[in-house]
């Protein structure tokens, strides 16, 4: 194995270990929010995108409607589609293999793959991260879900803040630069205003509008491809 590939494997292992910590927290909190062990594990196997999985469980677990839960889940999952666009040159050309590869397009595999110098290394980074992360994520979800079953009263252990704390840890590194901070502040304000007025789950959906506020204003030059 070349030194580049060995380095990629090491980085992928580091990413997978970090993700496993989230997996344990996800499994345990899913369980205390009303999901069974099989349901928590199915989400990690089939949905395989942490923020969407946590959002689905959070919205349903706090009494939100199915429509609100699915909307938030899919809006959060939409970014994986954008990653897939960016990765499409690295993904297999044949339809059958592409259908399989698409499942593994998430934040971490995209971030690990797009920074490589050659397409071969990019592909190697994508698959080594995908396989390690998928294994660690599913095992850690199972461990967390089993542990979560031992807890009778989640609020007594402060577990109702486990998901929001996890979301805060996910979003904190992204709050760099003025557009992101502005979006964050506007989203927080929308949430505070909407909570007393709108049914459960809807305030989070309204927060999506904050992404429009944070984006820079439309300029004429944006319409044409600028060099």
């Amino acid at each position: 194995m070349t030194p580049e590939r060995r380095k990629i494997m090491g980085d992928a292992l580091g990413v997978a270990l970090a993700v496993a910590a989230y997996g344990v927290a996800f499994g345990a909190t899913a369980r205390t929010s009303g999901a069974t062990v099989a349901q928590a594990c199915s989400l990690s196997l089939l949905m395989f995108t942490g923020a969407s999985q946590s959002a689905l469980i959070s919205v349903l677990g706090t009494g939100g409607t199915v429509a609100a839960a699915l909307s938030v889940t899919w809006l959060l999952g939409a970014r994986n589609g954008l990653y897939a666009m960016r990765l499409s040159a690295l993904l297999p050309r044949s339809l059958g293999r592409r259908v399989g590869a698409a499942h593994f397009v998430i934040d971490e595999t995209m971030a690990m793959a797009v920074v490589r110098e050659t397409p071969e290394l990019g592909r190697f980074a994508f698959w080594s991260t995908a396989l390690m992360l998928f294994s660690f994520w599913n095992i850690s979800t199972l461990v967390g879900a089993l542990a979560g079953g031992l807890i009778d009263d989640p609020a007594k252990f402060g577990l109702d803040v486990a998901f929001p704390a996890a979301f805060l840890a996910l979003v904190a590194p992204q709050l760099q630069g003025r557009p992101a901070r502005r979006t964050g502040v506007v989203a927080a304000l929308i949430a505070v205003v909407a909570i007393p007025l709108a049914p459960k789950g809807v305030p989070i959906l309204l927060c999506a509008m904050a992404a429009l506020v944070g984006a820079p204003p439309i300029r004429r030059s944006d319409a044409k491809p600028s060099q």
């Binding site: 970014r79 929001p164 805060l168 979006t183 964050g184 927080a188 949430a191 909570i195 007393p196």
Partner: peptide, 27 residues
């Protein structure tokens, strides 16, 4: 590009705030 970066920020901040202060139709 900007919108695709900001949408998760908006939703995650929304989840953080709602799950921290939602008391069932009141703060």
């Amino acid at each position: 590009q900007t919108f695709s970066k900001l949408l998760p920020v908006a939703l995650l901040v929304g989840l953080v705030v709602v799950m921290s202060v939602d008391g069932g139709r009141r703060l």
